[in-house]
Design a protein around this nucleic acid. Structure first.
Lengths: 191, 191
DNA sequence: TCGCACAAACCGACTGGCCGGTACGGCTGC
DNA sequence: GCAGCCGTACCGGCCAGTCGGTTTGTGCGA
């Protein structure tokens, strides 16, 4: 376990650099210098620069999915479940703000098969979310005059946009923003 | 009709390539080939690759601002003005979907002074939008229990996200989506 | 406890290719 | 014959990835 140290440091440095400079404009040399290791060490743990990027996506996707599953498993009235999911997604996204930046900005840099997988897993996630909306609609809780896909996009747009404006140093706390955005969303989709 | 000027063809090709591949991974050679001209011709009209990117931003910013000013100038009840602004922004963003993709994905690639200017003009735009919200709040039409900055972000997140999910070939027309998203937003911010 | 063997971890100079940008010459319309 | 317009060949620099070699850790027999 001690040897994952190098890999972790590299990933962390890569994440920060990708988030601040972008993937394409960050050289492997910069990453290894920031991580305090050498190219040789890095290429011992990763096959390519692309691997670094994918590892970041991997972690993010796995985390999001497990959170969603956990909350849905608890069960309860659909509105409560949806509220909990929304709040959690926003909070998690704030906890992982740099990942979010990289996530949306650099997706097109991933090599084809990996990009496809990311897209697939992301769609799975959206589908599960959409399922909640459908259940709510069936129960007459949510409006049906707007396509579900638009409602889904409407919510995830907020999540996506967080990394463009939210700052932990700003006036609002993570929890406040999560409640506020969730509140806005739930009100807009109510039947 | 020989005369879609070389500069225009280059810009158009650059826009499409930047939108589909990203700025950093698109070479000048690719751009000039797609535009059917040569490097020499391109560098006769543009000083650098960066110029191409900035020109795209320039056009977008100018367009958005002029639309906003026009609508605000018409005047009327604040809710009507805001509705018109929102619908227009969404529709315009759909008309200029590739620009939107490039806009948010490649901002960090612009050289420092230019990035600052883009940010400044964008903030101006947001401030004007925020001014509308403030007026509505003063008149008791919009809620005041959520910070205005969050409301602004909430709306622009939708605009931003359009390029990630909307397709002109999809089931919804531009106008429908504009009405739907605007409707969701206005309902969520009502007093 | 020590010597040894072997593998995993790590180092960093090097390379081949690409890319942004330039130099310069020729062409064309006025 | 001049001035903008454009083609072409080329350059210096950078960058991902490699590769031969060195170090560090570890198990083991004596």
């Amino acid at each position: 376990m001690k040897t994952t140290h190098v890999a972790d440091q590299v990933l962390q440095a890569a994440l920060e650099l990708f988030a601040s400079q972008g993937y394409a404009t960050t050289s492997v040399q910069q990453i290894v210098e920031a991580a305090g290791v050498t190219k040789g060490a890095m290429y011992h743990y990763f096959q390519s620069k692309d691997d670094l990027l994918f590892a970041i996506y991997e972690r993010m996707l796995t985390l999001q999915k497990s959170h969603l599953d956990e909350i849905v498993a608890v069960g309860g009235p659909v509105e409560d479940v949806l509220r909990a999911v929304c709040v959690d997604v926003v909070e998690t996204s704030i906890d992982f703000l740099p990942e979010g930046t990289v996530f949306f900005r650099s997706l097109h840099m991933l090599t084809e098969p990996r990009r496809k997988e990311v897209t697939r897993r992301r769609r799975e996630y959206h589908d599960e979310f959409s399922g909640l909306l459908e259940r709510g609609q069936d129960e007459g809780r949510f409006r049906t005059d707007v396509p579900r896909s638009v409602l889904v996009a409407h919510f995830f747009s907020d999540v996506h946009y967080l990394s463009h404006w939210y700052s932990p140093q700003g006036p609002e706390t993570k929890t406040e923003v999560a409640e506020q955005l969730t509140g806005l969303f739930l009100r807009s989709i109510a039947a």
